[in-house]
């Protein structure tokens, strides 16, 4: 076979493979859901994952949130100064952070930190037969390994987003008021005038979706690892790439629905 037929065939195969993978991810999610509602859930497993995903990500999230807010203030200032509307910098930073940058940047950072680690850890457990050992001991691996990670992802990414939002606004305030000399009262007044609770809630709802995507894809890639150390490396990379893409694409879709 040659020329156009071969190309069409190749494209078709790629599409099929991706659809198939999507289906398998969905099946894993459904299976995790069904185990989630079957007691007993081990609280300490969930707490351990929440600590890993949440507590240990605080530092990077604080750092990214703060600097994002600061740079937004800086960029916004130069734009708004042309219209003598410097006091809008505060509300721009706050809206940008709560609606968009808080959830997206937080979940991307958590993907890089925790999603990759989930894929690597489960991948190693897979290739060294530890997941089989769990199954043999009549402990369902989906329930034991995946359910706590999904719960941790869904709960902790929104909480981290709150931290990120807050730090971003704080960073914006610092740059706007203390460095660029915007009037502090006007800065704050505009934030309260333009940012609604709805903006914050929608941002957090997005964050919960991203947290789910991050942990689901990390777990899926780790769980289906094949072939030794190289396979674990491949699974980790694929998890980070696929989770990041999914977060960005679903961000567009969710934004189109919400706002």
């Amino acid at each position: 076979m040659n020329g156009p037929t071969a190309t069409v065939e190749r494209i078709g195969r790629i599409v099929l493979e991706n659809v198939e993978e999507l289906g398998r991810i969905l099946l894993l999610f459904l299976s995790a859901l069904s185990w989630m509602v079957r007691p007993p859930l081990k609280l300490h497993h969930i707490l351990k994952q929440m600590e890993f995903v949440g507590v240990k990500s605080i530092f990077v999230v604080v750092l990214t949130g703060t600097f994002t807010g600061m740079v937004m203030a800086l960029q916004g200032y130069h734009g708004f100064r042309m219209f003598a509307a410097e006091s809008l910098v505060g509300s721009t930073v706050a809206l940008g952070m709560t609606r968009e940058l808080g959830p997206v940047l937080t979940s991307l950072m958590v993907t890089a930190r925790a999603g990759s680690a989930m894929a690597a850890e489960l991948g190693t457990m897979r290739v060294t037969e530890q997941i089989d050992a769990l199954a043999v001991m009549a402990v369902n691996p989906v329930k034991h390994l995946i359910v706590p990670r999904l719960i941790a992802g869904v709960l902790m990414v929104p909480l981290l987003t709150v931290v990120s939002d807050f730090m971003g606004i704080l960073g914006g305030y610092f740059v706007g008021v203390h460095i660029l000399n915007i009037n502090s009262g006007a800065f704050m007044k505009n934030i309260f005038k333009y940012v609604t609770l709805g903006d914050i809630y929608n941002g957090l709802a997005k964050a919960a979706c991203f947290g789910l995507l991050m942990s689901l894809i990390g777990c899926y890639k780790g769980f289906n690892t094949r072939g030794g150390a190289e396979g674990v490396g491949r699974a980790t990379t694929e998890a980070v790439v696929l989770a990041s893409i999914s977060i960005l694409v679903s961000d567009y879709i969710l934004t189109a629905i919400m706002f």
């Binding site: 299976s31 457990m125 060294t128 037969e129 530890q130 089989d132 050992a133 199954a135 043999v136 001991m137 009549a138 369902n140 989906v142």
Partner: peptide, 21 residues
């Protein structure tokens, strides 16, 4: 999965590479 879990409670297994956690 669920019924298989019940059957597996009758078993113990040593893996070739031990498969310790």
């Amino acid at each position: 999965d669920k019924d298989l879990n019940e059957v597996r409670k009758k078993f113990g297994m040593l893996f070739q590479e031990a498969a310790l956690f």
